[in-house]
Design a protein around this nucleic acid. Structure first.
Lengths: 120, 120
DNA sequence: CGGAATCCTATATGATACTG
DNA sequence: CAGTATCATATAGGATTCCG
């Protein structure tokens, strides 16, 4: 497996958007309405949520169902294909859970020591 | 584990750049020089490669070593922390390898049937 | 409520040329 | 060879407003 290959690049293009992985993860337990997603995720604008869901739909990871009711009701659900992505996304999330502090510490060091060639 | 959390978002911000995951993966077998990386990866400009490596360095995932030689020699290597990221990245790459065709098929369907509400 | 349209800004990427 | 500087462009993200 070569990540430089187009096939592997595909996976990264898929979830490289800021909210894509978060939205997929928010759908892991079943169908959700956009309003619920916005509440659960927080900080995502309606436009961006819609764009993200549409992109996921285009890639066959999410299915959209709308009900002819008033007020209108719409639900998004992971497809079988979308569910297969939960594993890798979960692995990445777990990694973050385990190593976030180390990354933050490294970032911190960069702030504190950005100029090693001082005159001392 | 909640992907909406800042901690989990961190992981996605880390590899959400186009080349980040590819560069990390290219370093999986040991230290590499920038020129080698450019050759192996292909299609990445010197500027973007440098930016990517610098970002990885800032996050503690990659270490830079330069040798006082002529011509100048520089090597980049994964840190211990960086190596822990190979698992999740590999999982994503494997997913792509297994499901790329399905994603492409879904994209294809969108192209072929973009207007379900024709007059038929 | 869902979501489309509009406007705006920040950033990532890329091509190129130059410096050490 | 490594890395920076500059310029240009595409796109993502965000805020807001209006429509069904």
């Amino acid at each position: 497996m070569f990540l430089a290959d187009c096939q592997a690049r595909l996976a990264f293009d898929l979830i490289s958007n800021t909210w894509t992985a978060v939205v997929v993860w928010s759908l892991r337990h079943g169908p959700r309405r956009p309003g619920d997603l916005r509440t659960e995720i927080g900080g995502i604008s309606p436009k961006v949520l819609t764009e993200t869901l549409r992109r996921l739909e285009s890639n066959g990871l999410v299915a959209r169902r709308s009900y002819a009711e008033a007020p209108p009701r719409v639900e998004y659900d992971l497809t079988d294909l979308g569910r297969t992505l939960l594993g890798p996304i979960g692995a990445l999330g777990e990694w973050a859970f385990d190593h976030a502090d180390e990354v933050l510490a490294a970032q911190d060091r960069r702030i504190r020591a950005p100029m090693p060639r001082s005159n001392g």
